[in-house]
Design a protein around this nucleic acid. Structure first.
Lengths: 136, 136
DNA sequence: TCCGGAAATTAGACAAAGTCCAGATTGCTG
DNA sequence: CAGCAATCTGGACTTTGTCTAATTTCCGGA
């Protein structure tokens, strides 16, 4: 599957998002790379050639993508949020020195022994983050 | 065990921290409550009566406590870091609507199937966060 | 007790991430 | 083409956290 800009329009429509020029560019930045990007990084990518998309739009669009389930939010770094185009169940390895973030497929990971939740609560998601450091 | 200010001095010394007035107050705020507090909250607590401790000192002190292993950092909210006086192995439940954060004892939780790390890497910690929401 | 230096604290300027708003643009639809 | 809703924009603003240079506190030795 190639993540062309044309395909992005379909992807957006499939998630009930009106595919505007800016939204296509932002989706393309995330999906063509298949990487975890911060809002800042998205803005830099989208505006490499000429300045095309404003900061407000980048933030609005990422929030919209989040609501529509097109991307996931990864909170590992106290200073910025990462957006993850991979919405399949998976976990993360975070390299604390470099800030490098990578995926762990959830398929083989098993978590047991969690206490039951109160009746009026539902699990929205389980985030498992393995923080690693380069050996001294 | 009562977390009196006098006991705080001993706790700090035991962690190789010079127990100054401000540090004792900050430690007392965290340990007497046994709760997760943000830097802002710590500052508010410490300065309820009169303004006694500066913002810089609160941040410096929390960072120092972190380095010395007196507290843990919990990164769940994109907008602020929480400091956790409980340094025993445990996980967290985060109520996304209210921002309420509570502990899950790690004793009965078992995580299996994590992929092996590259040789030159060491695990610094595993953060497991269960994000929950009030049922509709 | 007084002195000097090291450690700690401070106010406030600064930086970075993110939010908000009022006005301009875009793209329908009739 | 007019009208209208959705979208986008620049820029001011807020919040969390950092940095720095100056002051204060603490303590050991003469």
């Amino acid at each position: 599957m190639h993540y062309t800009r044309d395909n992005m329009a379909g992807l957006l429509r499939g998630h009930d998002i009106n595919p505007t020029h800016q939204r296509i560019e932002i989706a393309h930045a995330l999906f063509s790379r298949q990487e975890h990007l911060s809002a800042d990084q998205v803005m830099a990518i989208v505006n490499t050639r000429h300045s095309e998309t404003s900061k407000a739009t980048v933030y609005n669009t990422l929030k919209l993508f989040l609501e529509k389930g097109l991307v996931r939010e990864v909170i590992v770094d106290p200073s910025k949020v990462f957006f993850d185009p991979n919405t399949t169940p998976h976990h993360h390895i975070y390299e604390v020195d470099s800030g490098k973030l990578s995926d762990i497929d959830a398929e083989h990971v098993h978590i047991s022994g969690l206490p039951p939740l109160p009746d009026n609560m539902v699990t929205e998601g389980i985030d498992l983050i393995v923080r690693v450091r380069r050996k001294a």
